[in-house]
Design a binder for these strands. Structure first.
Lengths: 335, 335
DNA sequence: TTGAAAGCGATACCAT
DNA sequence: ATGGTATCGCTTTCAA
């Protein structure tokens, strides 16, 4: 592999000049620039990104931490980030945090040790304090799906409360009055916010929430099934179920079917996230769209703008969810 | 951030010695080693991985190219790779190739320019020749889901032909004799191999394949729907359908349902891949398991063994698919 | 076992 | 506009 030195020799100029044309910002005469370009071409020169990093103290890489690499959710996010970053010539290093505190910290350490220029984090287990301290260090971070007031500018988040509200509102407008709610793990802020949205919609319609119709799951489909069993076992009537995410909705739907309930005739269900699977399950799931791909993209733009000085970019911190109507929820049968 | 130089000063030894204890291979006296370790500890020293890379000509990073970051398939694969790599302290740089030749080449170039030590590639559009040439260069590569005889050792692949055979065999054993086949794009080797497996099973049962019952899709669910329409439109009877992948099976199932066909009573369907969605769709899809996570893991091990000298690792190049029985295929109704 | 010193391939400051 | 050169933080001979 040719080095900058060989290029400079062939072009008959100095190292410094070659470097200048590479970073084509400095003032180089049209003439020398062409000589250098020609030499590069001839040698098939490719700059050594590692040497560049060492000298410039910039790795041009951004670290990403997600909970899991598999699953229906993070792929969209990574996709958005990678797209944006690669277009800017930055590369993306990934690690998984598995929703566990130790593992998340470990992943962050790992990314830091790889000298990333910035980190995009989708963390769940780590505390606000930890993140605040981290953000006050030298490593720039941006948080996806998490809002910390002190770090507001670094957060790209969804208005989960609004989403919860919208989901419930839809059912209410379809005439349902007896609603069950299947929550995510309440220690996760998104689960809590979605639940609060539900309560707000209920209150707005003058409905009081019956705690017996609340079940708390863990966002997995298996817990959706388990929660549905519990709910059904109580023998309390409800014509609609709002689930804090699509996976639990899928699990719930399965159990409902096993109990001879038709969806949506006997039971309307609405989910949250609008995962791919929402279109695959039967009946197709009415849900709340979570624009996670867009949000990943935005996180990448944040980095591009704040770390790599691409000033022109427009940023947006909070995204609004929207309702996606499909087949799993319908107006309550008259009478 | 402390440098190796500061550590050496504090420990009262030379640079070289510190370096030796870091790469704990060289012979360093227990005594000095402890002094150095203590100094590192005290300074909170973290080696600069970029400087290490430049000096050692090793980036400790492996590049991954997948077709898409989203979607139900690649996540599993990335997950397997990341796991294995991180445990070994190597990091993973990712890029997407979008199943287009130019984009795949571009991604590979990008990864190379990032000085990866090796590349793990899941490519579809690029030619065998290109890959052979690439493999003969200085960049070690391993191919997932692609078999090229000249590069056999670098290939981690699935016996797709066997998978196609197994899928069809199952239907045949359940008594079906009129089978339709929905193929993937035949220019992709996996699509072709799966189809050949189908033909072999048919032949083995003395059944001749009716070309009118073949439809070629593009592995997406929308094409599954479209192909199903075509098949139905011909008016030829068939009691079972084998699909070259799960997504098309999902699309086909939807159309079947819209035509008033019950699955599996009126029509048995089997898929291929065993994506998560196979468990979510209704009825649950009988399919062929594609251990893509394991294969990703294996690709990572290949790199660890061949590039990073972890000699102990056991490698395996070809994986055998297995049938997963669920609810979408059943014995043909008597009479 | 330990140290000295020459790179690795760029960047960036200081001259000219 | 261009060149000279110190520098980034570490690895790796070669000597001692």
């Amino acid at each position: 592999m040719a080095t900058i030195y060989q290029v400079s020799e062939l072009a008959g100029v100095s190292l410094a000049t070659v470097s200048r044309v590479m970073n084509n910002n400095a003032r180089v005469s049209e003439n020398t620039r062409n000589k250098v370009l020609a030499a590069m071409e001839q040698l098939g020169y490719r700059p050594n990104s590692i040497a560049q990093s060492l000298a410039s103290n910039r790795s041009n890489s951004v670290g990403i931490l997600v909970s899991e690499l598999h699953g229906p959710f993070y792929g969209e996010m990574l996709s958005g980030i990678e797209n944006e970053c690669r277009a800017a010539g930055k590369h993306v290093i990934i690690a998984a945090g598995h929703s566990e505190e130790a593992s998340e910290k470990d992943g962050i350490e790992f990314l830091i040790s790889r000298s990333c220029d910035a980190l995009i984090l989708h963390v769940e287990a780590v505390s606000d304090e930890y993140l605040i301290k981290l953000a006050n260090g030298n490593m720039p971070i941006v948080l996806i799906n998490r809002f910390i007031p002190q770090l507001a500018d670094n957060c790209i988040s969804l208005d989960n409360e609004l989403g919860g509200y919208l989901a419930t509102k839809q059912l209410l407008q379809q005439g349902h009055t007896q609603l069950a709610y299947m929550a995510g793990p309440m220690w996760k802020s998104d689960a809590k916010d979605r639940y609060h949205g539900h309560l707000r919609a209920m209150a707005e319609h003058g409905l009081s929430f019956n705690p017996a119709l609340l079940a708390e799951g863990d966002f997995q489909d298996s817990s959706g099934s388990a929660c549905m069993q519990q709910l059904l076992a109580k023998g309390l009537p409800f014509s609609a179920l709002v689930c804090a995410n699509d996976e639990m909705a899928a699990g719930a739907m399965e159990v409902a079917r096993a109990h001879g309930l038709n969806v949506p005739q006997d039971l309307s269900i609405v989910g949250f996230d609008n995962l791919i699977l929402a279109r695959y399950i039967y009946p197709k799931l009415t849900t709340i769209d979570y624009p996670i791909g867009e949000m990943g993209r935005m996180a990448a733009r944040w980095v591009l703008k704040n770390i790599y000085q691409q000033q022109a970019l427009q940023l947006k911190n909070i995204f609004q969810p929207v309702l996606v109507c499909r087949d799993s929820a319908s107006a309550i049968a008259a009478g």
